[in-house]
Amino acid sequence: MSLSTTDRSLLDPAIRRLNALRPLSSAARASLEYAMLEGVQHAGANEDLVSEGDPVDSVRIVLSGWLCRYKMLEDGRRQIVNFILPGESCDAHVFLLSTMDHTIGALTPVVFAEVKRARFDSLLAADRSLAEAFLCETLVNNAVQREWAVNLGRRVALERVAHLFCEIFERLRPVGMVDGNSCAMPVTQMDLADATGLSVVHLNRTLQELRASGLIVLRDRTLVIKDLDALKDVALFSPGYLQVYRGGRERG
């Protein structure tokens, strides 16, 4: 099976993401590409891919579009506990548990690859570099969740929103989805409020403060960071927890 240019373009974010965490062998890349292509699926905006309490028997890898993990309270309030960006998986090892403890929903139209557990297990068993890459991704996801806990528990509103923007920018960079100092930001103010634990009114005021400070421009579903170093200072942001190894050599 040969991959067309279109196929490779679709799969590129996932391959680049994993390869940034651990250099993949040529065989691992080829095996994963074929497995992903066989399981390509689509979902519309505001559609849930899997709900809290559902059984899980597969791994979903995002190829394009944005999703979120979220929890709902009985009174309808939503807490977004993380965004899932192009190239990232929806928990590579979640099928080891019996059911989902949160819901994964699409914020935009998405394309994703669904790889069944048996196929995924065989891929990891066949190549150590791939197993290490997915394990690294799981560990990074854990680190991101810890950072989000600090965001909600200790950072003030301005720091929370600035930190979220810095993190998204740095997570999109390894998959080639930043353009200079700008990146996509295809989420609503309600989404941002639910991710930062703020009311929409407070979130809007915070965005206005960041704009007035000359740090960002947020328009037409695009975030422009005017001064990344200054935004990181405001956010008390250090990217070390994202554990992205730049410039690694591919294994043979």
Rank of each mutant, 00 (worst) to 15 (best):
S9D: 08
P13D: 14
A14H: 04
L18P: 00
S26H: 15
S26I: 06
A30S: 15
M36E: 06
L37D: 05
Q41P: 13
A45T: 09
E47M: 15
S51A: 15
G53E: 08
G53N: 05
D54E: 09
P55V: 07
P55E: 13
V56N: 15
S58W: 09
S58L: 09
V59R: 00
L63V: 03
L67H: 09
C68R: 14
K71A: 14
I80Y: 05
F83E: 05
G87M: 01
S89M: 00
S89Q: 03
D91E: 10
D91V: 01
A92N: 06
H93G: 11
V94Q: 06
S98G: 08
P109N: 05
A113P: 04
A118Q: 12
F120G: 08
F120S: 08
D121Y: 00
D121R: 01
A126K: 01
L130Y: 13
A131G: 02
A133W: 01
L135H: 06
E137K: 00
A143Q: 12
R146S: 10
R146F: 10
A149P: 04
V150S: 11
N151K: 15
N151M: 11
N151Y: 11
R154A: 12
R160K: 11
F165T: 05
E167C: 00
E170R: 14
P174I: 01
T196F: 04
G197F: 01
L198Y: 05
V200K: 13
V201N: 14
V201D: 15
L203H: 07
A212W: 12
S213Y: 04
G214T: 02
R219E: 12
R221G: 14
R221A: 05
T222W: 08
V224I: 15
I225M: 05
A230E: 10
A230W: 01
S238W: 07
G240D: 15
L242D: 15
V244M: 12
Y245T: 14
R249D: 15
G252P: 00
G252V: 03
